[in-house]
Computed example of a mutant assay.
Amino acid sequence: MTPLVGLLTLLAMLAFAANSLLARAAFSTTDIDPASFTAIRLASGALTLFVILRWQGSKPTSFRSGGWSALTLFIYAAAFSFAYRDISTGAGALVLFASAQLLMISYGLYKGERASVLGLLLAFGGLVAFLVPSASAPPLSAAVLMALAGSAWGVFSLLGRSQGAPIISTTSSFIWALPLAAVLVLTQVQQLNTDAMGVVYALLSGCVASGLGYAVWYWVRVRMTAIGAGAVQLSVPVISAVMGVALLDETMSLHSVVSALLTLGGVAWVSLTIRNTKG
């Protein structure tokens, strides 16, 4: 990995972690509601990606799985926003990441790939231990919503694997998700509320952490091995937790830290073995 690829990879992981931090900051320090945050994030992300495409001389095009990709992107973004009303930055990122990775791993196993059973059990066991009712466990409703967000993101990622131009397909998905965001806003009209700082957080999440973050990641992704690309994403929940502690005064108990490490370790174990032994 060259120094430039390494630096941009770090920036991409910081952007992914910043999505969690920005959402949690918005709902814990401002009055913006989840539906408004979701709509602003998707709209600003779509605009940013569209500008990047036009700068490159490209444009969004139709593709076979576009409708499903837009739906899963919307479900991810909406569930992500509603979950972060009641879950800490690091806990939310862990549930999101683990749910997405475990869904994709399960799909791979279903399709005949092989992986470490012990690693899979370790990942599931760590996640269950993290979520088991305790003084430090996140609220069940928020954890379920974040697991839904992670599962939707996992499906979105699987659908995107068949596309040859990920930035084009992702831009199209963002654009096609906007009508769904509009419907969400209409159904939540009685609960809508915004303020200046909440809108700023949503715009930063859409333009910088999502739009620019995804563009940078797709550039470095093709310059990394599959194992490297999977392993580096293990840093996102850790970065998110550190950001939450440093910037939002959040805390994590020893039980949560150990459970999180078991989950991430199990996912890493499975990710490495599934790539080394399949086929």
Rank of each mutant, 00 (worst) to 15 (best):
A100K: 00
L102V: 06
L103G: 03
M104V: 06
S106C: 12
S106Y: 08
Y107R: 08
Y107S: 08
L109V: 11
L109M: 13
Y110I: 10
K111G: 03
G112F: 13
A115H: 03
V117W: 14
G119C: 07
G119L: 05
G119I: 05
G119E: 05
L121W: 15
A123Q: 04
G125T: 11
G126S: 11
A129Q: 07
A129H: 06
F130E: 03
P133L: 15
A135E: 12
A137Y: 01
A137Q: 02
A137C: 04
P138M: 08
S141P: 06
A142W: 01
A143V: 08
V144W: 03
L145C: 07
A147C: 02
L148H: 02
G150E: 02
A152V: 13
W153T: 08
V155N: 04
F156C: 05
F156N: 06
F156V: 06
L159Q: 06
L159E: 05
L159S: 04
G160F: 01
S162N: 14
G164T: 07
A165K: 09
I168Y: 10
I168F: 11
S169A: 15
T170S: 14
T171A: 14
L178P: 02
L178E: 05
L178V: 10
V183R: 11
V183C: 13
L186V: 09
